[in-house]
Amino acid sequence: MALPAGADSQKSQLTRRQFVRLTVVGGATLVWTSGCQDAPPPEPAMMPVPRFLTDEERQGLAVLADYVLPPDDQPGGAALGAVEYVEALLTALEYDPPRLLADGPFSDRNPIPLPDGSPSNVYPENSFRRFLPLTREQLLSWRLQLYGSADVPGGGPNDGLLGPTLGFRELCRQGLAQARQLAGRPLAKLEAGEVDDVWRKLRPDFLGLVTELVIAAAFGAPEYGGNRDSAGWKMIHVEGDVLPQGYSFYNEQTGRYQERPDLPISTKDLRPDPDPMDAETILHLEFVVRVLGGRTSP
Protein backbone atom coordinates (compact mmCIF):
# COMPACT_ATOMS: atom_id res chain seq x y z
CA MET A 1 0.00 0.00 0.00
CA ALA A 2 1.11 3.56 -0.54
CA LEU A 3 -0.10 7.07 -0.18
CA PRO A 4 -1.32 8.92 -3.25
CA ALA A 5 1.14 11.47 -4.58
CA GLY A 6 0.94 14.73 -2.68
CA ALA A 7 -0.64 13.21 0.40
CA ASP A 8 2.45 13.89 2.44
CA SER A 9 2.06 17.65 2.40
CA GLN A 10 1.96 17.87 6.17
CA LYS A 11 2.76 15.56 9.02
CA SER A 12 -0.46 14.08 10.17
CA GLN A 13 -1.91 11.22 12.07
CA LEU A 14 -4.98 9.78 10.48
CA THR A 15 -7.62 9.42 13.14
CA ARG A 16 -10.82 7.51 13.28
CA ARG A 17 -12.82 10.69 12.96
CA GLN A 18 -11.07 11.44 9.72
CA PHE A 19 -10.44 8.91 7.05
CA VAL A 20 -8.85 6.09 8.90
CA ARG A 21 -7.26 3.78 6.47
CA LEU A 22 -5.64 4.00 3.09
CA THR A 23 -5.41 0.86 1.14
CA VAL A 24 -3.95 0.17 -2.23
CA VAL A 25 -5.76 -2.50 -4.11
CA GLY A 26 -4.50 -3.33 -7.55
CA GLY A 27 -2.82 0.01 -7.91
CA ALA A 28 -5.74 2.21 -7.00
CA THR A 29 -5.50 4.08 -3.72
CA LEU A 30 -8.76 4.01 -1.90
CA VAL A 31 -9.82 5.73 1.22
CA TRP A 32 -11.94 3.84 3.63
CA THR A 33 -13.88 5.10 6.58
CA SER A 34 -14.22 2.76 9.48
CA GLY A 35 -17.80 1.95 10.28
CA CYS A 36 -16.95 1.21 13.88
CA GLN A 37 -17.61 3.20 17.03
CA ASP A 38 -16.77 6.88 17.00
CA ALA A 39 -15.40 7.15 20.53
CA PRO A 40 -11.62 7.44 20.74
CA PRO A 41 -10.10 4.12 21.78
CA PRO A 42 -8.75 3.83 25.32
CA GLU A 43 -5.05 4.35 25.88
CA PRO A 44 -3.39 0.95 25.69
CA ALA A 45 -0.85 1.09 28.45
CA MET A 46 -3.07 2.75 31.02
CA MET A 47 -3.61 0.87 34.22
CA PRO A 48 -6.51 -1.53 33.86
CA VAL A 49 -9.34 -0.38 36.08
CA PRO A 50 -10.36 -3.76 37.45
CA ARG A 51 -7.49 -5.12 39.45
CA PHE A 52 -6.90 -8.66 40.54
CA LEU A 53 -3.49 -8.60 42.20
CA THR A 54 -2.90 -6.88 45.53
CA ASP A 55 -0.16 -4.27 45.85
CA GLU A 56 2.12 -6.77 47.54
CA GLU A 57 1.43 -9.37 44.85
CA ARG A 58 2.25 -6.80 42.20
CA GLN A 59 5.53 -5.95 43.91
CA GLY A 60 6.34 -9.65 44.22
CA LEU A 61 5.57 -10.21 40.55
CA ALA A 62 7.83 -7.30 39.64
CA VAL A 63 10.69 -8.97 41.50
CA LEU A 64 10.13 -12.22 39.60
CA ALA A 65 9.84 -10.32 36.30
CA ASP A 66 13.24 -8.77 36.94
CA TYR A 67 14.59 -12.21 37.77
CA VAL A 68 13.48 -13.51 34.35
CA LEU A 69 14.80 -10.45 32.49
CA PRO A 70 17.09 -8.46 34.78
CA PRO A 71 17.67 -4.76 34.26
CA ASP A 72 21.15 -3.78 33.05
CA ASP A 73 21.93 -1.01 30.59
CA GLN A 74 18.50 -1.90 29.19
CA PRO A 75 15.24 -2.16 31.14
CA GLY A 76 14.30 -5.38 32.93
CA GLY A 77 11.02 -7.27 32.97
CA ALA A 78 9.32 -4.99 35.48
CA ALA A 79 10.29 -1.73 33.77
CA LEU A 80 9.12 -3.18 30.48
CA GLY A 81 5.63 -3.52 31.98
CA ALA A 82 5.36 -7.20 32.93
CA VAL A 83 3.10 -6.50 35.92
CA GLU A 84 0.71 -4.40 33.87
CA TYR A 85 0.72 -7.06 31.15
CA VAL A 86 -0.13 -9.84 33.61
CA GLU A 87 -2.80 -7.77 35.33
CA ALA A 88 -4.36 -6.94 31.96
CA LEU A 89 -4.44 -10.63 31.06
CA LEU A 90 -5.89 -11.74 34.37
CA THR A 91 -8.69 -9.13 34.17
CA ALA A 92 -9.19 -9.35 30.39
CA LEU A 93 -12.67 -10.86 30.62
CA GLU A 94 -13.91 -7.96 32.72
CA TYR A 95 -13.96 -5.83 29.57
CA ASP A 96 -16.34 -6.01 26.63
CA PRO A 97 -14.90 -6.98 24.27
CA PRO A 98 -12.34 -8.89 26.33
CA ARG A 99 -8.82 -7.44 26.13
CA LEU A 100 -7.30 -10.60 24.72
CA LEU A 101 -6.98 -10.30 20.93
CA ALA A 102 -6.01 -6.87 19.63
CA ASP A 103 -7.52 -5.75 16.34
CA GLY A 104 -5.56 -5.05 13.14
CA PRO A 105 -4.30 -4.33 10.58
CA PHE A 106 -1.80 -1.69 11.71
CA SER A 107 -0.42 0.06 14.74
CA ASP A 108 0.74 3.65 14.36
CA ARG A 109 4.42 2.76 14.71
CA ASN A 110 5.34 2.81 11.02
CA PRO A 111 4.44 5.24 8.26
CA ILE A 112 2.56 4.69 5.07
CA PRO A 113 5.08 4.67 2.20
CA LEU A 114 5.04 7.24 -0.57
CA PRO A 115 4.60 6.07 -4.18
CA ASP A 116 8.39 5.82 -4.54
CA GLY A 117 8.59 3.60 -1.45
CA SER A 118 10.16 6.16 0.86
CA PRO A 119 8.48 6.71 4.22
CA SER A 120 5.89 9.46 4.44
CA ASN A 121 5.01 11.44 7.54
CA VAL A 122 1.56 9.89 7.57
CA TYR A 123 0.87 7.14 10.05
CA PRO A 124 -2.18 4.88 10.15
CA GLU A 125 -4.62 4.90 13.02
CA ASN A 126 -3.55 2.41 15.70
CA SER A 127 -6.11 -0.36 15.40
CA PHE A 128 -4.21 -2.46 17.96
CA ARG A 129 -5.87 -0.35 20.63
CA ARG A 130 -9.21 -1.98 19.90
CA PHE A 131 -9.92 -5.56 20.85
CA LEU A 132 -11.79 -8.23 18.92
CA PRO A 133 -14.95 -9.85 20.23
CA LEU A 134 -14.52 -13.54 21.03
CA THR A 135 -16.67 -16.38 19.76
CA ARG A 136 -18.75 -18.37 22.21
CA GLU A 137 -16.17 -21.17 22.11
CA GLN A 138 -13.22 -18.79 22.60
CA LEU A 139 -14.97 -17.09 25.49
CA LEU A 140 -15.68 -20.39 27.22
CA SER A 141 -12.09 -21.53 26.67
CA TRP A 142 -10.66 -18.31 28.07
CA ARG A 143 -12.98 -18.43 31.06
CA LEU A 144 -11.64 -21.91 31.77
CA GLN A 145 -8.05 -20.77 31.19
CA LEU A 146 -8.22 -17.68 33.40
CA TYR A 147 -10.73 -18.67 36.07
CA GLY A 148 -10.37 -22.46 36.08
CA SER A 149 -12.91 -25.28 36.27
CA ALA A 150 -14.29 -24.02 39.58
CA ASP A 151 -15.71 -20.88 37.98
CA VAL A 152 -17.11 -22.47 34.83
CA PRO A 153 -20.65 -23.87 35.05
CA GLY A 154 -20.35 -27.65 34.89
CA GLY A 155 -16.54 -27.44 35.10
CA GLY A 156 -14.10 -28.10 32.25
CA PRO A 157 -14.99 -30.70 29.61
CA ASN A 158 -12.20 -33.05 30.73
CA ASP A 159 -12.04 -32.55 34.48
CA GLY A 160 -12.81 -36.25 34.97
CA LEU A 161 -9.93 -37.30 32.76
CA LEU A 162 -7.30 -34.64 33.43
CA GLY A 163 -8.35 -33.22 36.77
CA PRO A 164 -9.79 -29.73 37.17
CA THR A 165 -8.08 -26.82 35.41
CA LEU A 166 -6.40 -24.37 37.76
CA GLY A 167 -7.01 -20.94 36.21
CA PHE A 168 -4.17 -18.49 35.61
CA ARG A 169 -5.65 -16.14 38.24
CA GLU A 170 -5.60 -18.70 41.00
CA LEU A 171 -2.24 -20.09 39.86
CA CYS A 172 -0.70 -16.60 40.06
CA ARG A 173 -2.25 -16.04 43.48
CA GLN A 174 -1.04 -19.39 44.83
CA GLY A 175 2.39 -19.06 43.22
CA LEU A 176 2.96 -15.58 44.60
CA ALA A 177 1.81 -16.75 48.03
CA GLN A 178 4.27 -19.65 47.85
CA ALA A 179 7.06 -17.27 46.86
CA ARG A 180 6.18 -14.99 49.81
CA GLN A 181 6.24 -17.98 52.12
CA LEU A 182 9.57 -19.26 50.78
CA ALA A 183 11.07 -15.81 51.19
CA GLY A 184 9.70 -15.34 54.67
CA ARG A 185 8.96 -11.69 53.85
CA PRO A 186 7.75 -9.66 50.90
CA LEU A 187 9.81 -10.49 47.80
CA ALA A 188 10.62 -6.83 47.32
CA LYS A 189 12.65 -6.96 50.54
CA LEU A 190 14.97 -9.74 49.29
CA GLU A 191 18.55 -9.19 48.25
CA ALA A 192 19.30 -10.09 44.62
CA GLY A 193 20.97 -13.40 45.45
CA GLU A 194 18.07 -14.51 47.64
CA VAL A 195 15.54 -14.44 44.79
CA ASP A 196 17.51 -17.24 43.21
CA ASP A 197 16.70 -19.62 46.09
CA VAL A 198 13.00 -18.74 45.96
CA TRP A 199 12.84 -19.15 42.18
CA ARG A 200 14.31 -22.66 42.28
CA LYS A 201 11.71 -23.86 44.76
CA LEU A 202 8.63 -22.42 43.03
CA ARG A 203 5.96 -24.81 41.86
CA PRO A 204 6.88 -25.66 38.25
CA ASP A 205 3.51 -24.69 36.73
CA PHE A 206 3.75 -21.19 38.22
CA LEU A 207 7.40 -20.85 37.29
CA GLY A 208 6.57 -21.80 33.69
CA LEU A 209 3.61 -19.44 33.54
CA VAL A 210 5.56 -16.48 34.93
CA THR A 211 8.43 -17.10 32.53
CA GLU A 212 6.15 -17.20 29.50
CA LEU A 213 4.15 -14.17 30.61
CA VAL A 214 7.22 -12.04 31.28
CA ILE A 215 8.66 -13.00 27.89
CA ALA A 216 5.37 -12.14 26.14
CA ALA A 217 5.19 -8.86 28.05
CA ALA A 218 8.73 -7.90 27.09
CA PHE A 219 8.57 -8.78 23.41
CA GLY A 220 4.88 -8.51 22.45
CA ALA A 221 2.95 -5.51 21.16
CA PRO A 222 2.86 -2.61 23.66
CA GLU A 223 -0.94 -2.41 23.48
CA TYR A 224 -1.15 -5.43 25.81
CA GLY A 225 0.52 -3.50 28.61
CA GLY A 226 4.15 -4.61 28.32
CA ASN A 227 7.06 -3.67 26.01
CA ARG A 228 6.78 -0.09 27.20
CA ASP A 229 7.74 2.38 24.45
CA SER A 230 8.80 -0.65 22.37
CA ALA A 231 11.91 -0.82 24.58
CA GLY A 232 11.78 -4.63 24.53
CA TRP A 233 12.00 -4.64 20.75
CA LYS A 234 14.71 -1.99 20.60
CA MET A 235 16.79 -3.96 23.08
CA ILE A 236 16.80 -7.03 20.82
CA HIS A 237 17.09 -5.09 17.55
CA VAL A 238 13.73 -5.97 16.03
CA GLU A 239 11.21 -3.61 14.54
CA GLY A 240 7.99 -5.32 15.64
CA ASP A 241 5.00 -4.84 13.34
CA VAL A 242 6.53 -3.03 10.36
CA LEU A 243 3.47 -2.54 8.19
CA PRO A 244 2.30 -0.45 6.44
CA GLN A 245 5.93 0.32 5.59
CA GLY A 246 7.18 -3.26 5.44
CA TYR A 247 10.72 -4.36 4.63
CA SER A 248 10.07 -4.30 0.88
CA PHE A 249 8.11 -2.11 -1.47
CA TYR A 250 6.81 -3.03 -4.89
CA ASN A 251 7.17 0.05 -7.04
CA GLU A 252 4.38 -0.01 -9.56
CA GLN A 253 6.01 2.65 -11.68
CA THR A 254 9.17 0.64 -12.21
CA GLY A 255 7.66 -2.83 -11.80
CA ARG A 256 10.42 -3.73 -9.35
CA TYR A 257 10.80 -4.46 -5.69
CA GLN A 258 12.81 -2.04 -3.55
CA GLU A 259 14.45 -2.88 -0.27
CA ARG A 260 15.15 -0.55 2.61
CA PRO A 261 18.81 0.46 2.75
CA ASP A 262 18.74 0.44 6.55
CA LEU A 263 17.11 -2.98 6.87
CA PRO A 264 17.82 -5.02 3.74
CA ILE A 265 16.26 -8.44 3.07
CA SER A 266 18.53 -9.93 0.42
CA THR A 267 21.90 -8.43 1.33
CA LYS A 268 24.22 -8.20 4.28
CA ASP A 269 23.48 -5.61 6.96
CA LEU A 270 25.80 -2.63 6.55
CA ARG A 271 25.54 -1.47 10.16
CA PRO A 272 27.96 -3.05 12.62
CA ASP A 273 26.58 -5.94 14.67
CA PRO A 274 24.97 -4.21 17.66
CA ASP A 275 25.32 -7.23 19.97
CA PRO A 276 27.81 -9.85 18.71
CA MET A 277 27.73 -13.34 20.19
CA ASP A 278 29.70 -13.32 23.43
CA ALA A 279 31.93 -16.00 24.93
CA GLU A 280 29.19 -17.45 27.14
CA THR A 281 26.80 -17.77 24.21
CA ILE A 282 29.50 -19.53 22.22
CA LEU A 283 30.15 -21.94 25.09
CA HIS A 284 26.45 -22.65 25.38
CA LEU A 285 26.05 -23.27 21.66
CA GLU A 286 29.11 -25.51 21.55
CA PHE A 287 27.62 -27.54 24.37
CA VAL A 288 24.26 -27.86 22.61
CA VAL A 289 25.92 -28.81 19.32
CA ARG A 290 27.96 -31.50 21.10
CA VAL A 291 24.86 -32.94 22.76
CA LEU A 292 23.02 -33.03 19.44
CA GLY A 293 25.97 -34.52 17.58
CA GLY A 294 26.19 -31.51 15.27
CA ARG A 295 29.11 -29.70 13.67
CA THR A 296 31.20 -26.64 14.49
CA SER A 297 33.28 -24.80 11.94
CA PRO A 298 36.95 -24.51 12.89
Binding site: A102, P105, F128, G220, G240
Partner: peptide
Protein backbone atom coordinates in the same frame (compact mmCIF):
# COMPACT_ATOMS: atom_id res chain seq x y z
CA UNK B 1 -8.50 -7.98 11.45
CA UNK B 2 -5.01 -9.48 11.10
CA UNK B 3 -1.77 -7.83 12.16
CA UNK B 4 1.86 -8.43 12.98
CA UNK B 5 0.90 -9.22 16.56
CA UNK B 6 2.62 -12.26 18.02
CA UNK B 7 0.58 -12.22 21.22
CA UNK B 8 -2.67 -12.44 19.31
Amino acid sequence: HFSGDEIK
